[in-house]
């Protein structure tokens, strides 16, 4: 791990071929090619500019940055929910133009279908995709997130953490190549969040889609990621790339690790710089 180290796709591919990396997915390669996004609604606002990056199949990549720097916009681009003003997004060589089951998404909160029981939320995808046994498939994924005993509950009767677990099960039940997660644990209390992070890592041992994760929590990013993109603000873009290969994932007490503390401090400084930019702009960063 080195800050600012250019990511070497060739080396990574050789690692995968040699089985040195645990993941061995064939799909889920994401390529952003000179992306910019402007919203013309009021004055022409450029929200994201000049973003190019490649994400490998099965990689866990995090966009880290202050609110308003364009993290959600990047995620929406990759999912096809918005179109870039310039540039192109490809997943596994196919141009992304609209949301399709190649990707799936977990939002911060309240995105479950409130009128469906947990099991029907999870079975929605398998049903839509013509799975022969959608309920059985849904049960399998609910069991995976430890909620098979809450299958018949409506979302409103579940805690925030449980709702997010159902949302994760629902997103995984169609076997997406790329899983987008927009601050998925951001609305949870610290204890629940930390358990959810461990659960997410466990899930990834069995099901290994490419994960593109958005957060403004430095510890969360350091704990989970193979690679972190620290974002710059106004306009949004990539400020720094940090490759970890998940090295802090299995540490029990990261804060005792000097390397972790140094890296954390470095990132915090970077983010603070960007936060001030957003903070000091005329509209206060709304």
């Amino acid at each position: 791990m080195t800050a600012n180290r250019r990511f070497e796709a060739g080396q990574r591919l050789r690692d995968i071929a040699a089985g040195r990396l645990r993941r061995h997915c064939a799909t889920g390669a994401v390529a952003l090619d000179d992306i910019s996004v402007s919203f013309f609604s009021d004055r022409s606002v450029t929200v994201v500019s000049g973003v190019s990056l490649t994400i490998l199949p099965g990689e866990f990549v995090t966009f880290l940055g202050p609110s308003g720097c364009g993290k959600t916009t990047l995620l929406n681009l990759i999912g096809g929910m918005i179109r870039p003003t310039t540039g192109k997004v490809h997943i596994d060589g196919a141009l992304v133009t609209e949301p399709t089951p190649v990707c799936n998404i977990v939002f911060q909160q309240h995105s479950l279908f409130g009128w469906m029981r947990a099991i029907d939320n999870v079975a929605f995808g398998p049903r839509a995709m013509g799975h022969p046994d959608p309920r059985g498939e849904a049960m399998r994924f609910l069991r995976l997130v430890g909620l098979d005993n809450h299958a018949d509950a409506y979302p409103a009767a579940l805690s925030g953490g449980m709702q997010q677990r159902v949302a994760i099960a629902r997103a995984l039940a169609t076997a997406p190549s790329v899983l987008l997660m927009d601050e998925p644990f951001g609305a949870l209390d610290a204890q629940t969040r930390s358990i959810m992070q461990e659960e997410l890592l466990k899930l990834r041992r069995d099901i290994a889609p490419t994960v593109i994760f958005v957060t403004h929590d430095v510890d969360e990013a350091l704990l989970l990621s193979d690679r972190i993109f620290v974002m710059r603000a106004m306009p949004g873009g990539l400020k720094e790339e940090i490759t970890l290969d998940g090295e802090f994932r299995h540490e029990t007490d990261v804060l005792r690790n000097g390397k972790y503390r140094k890296l954390r401090q470095h990132i915090l400084t970077q983010i603070r710089e960007e936060t001030l930019k957003v903070f000091n702009r005329p509209d206060g960063g709304r």
Partner: peptide, 13 residues
């Protein structure tokens, strides 16, 4: 909720 519409499209509806 647009998130519901997006979620459903990702799920293949």
């Amino acid at each position: 909720d647009p998130r519901h519409v997006y979620a459903a499209r990702f799920l293949g509806a």
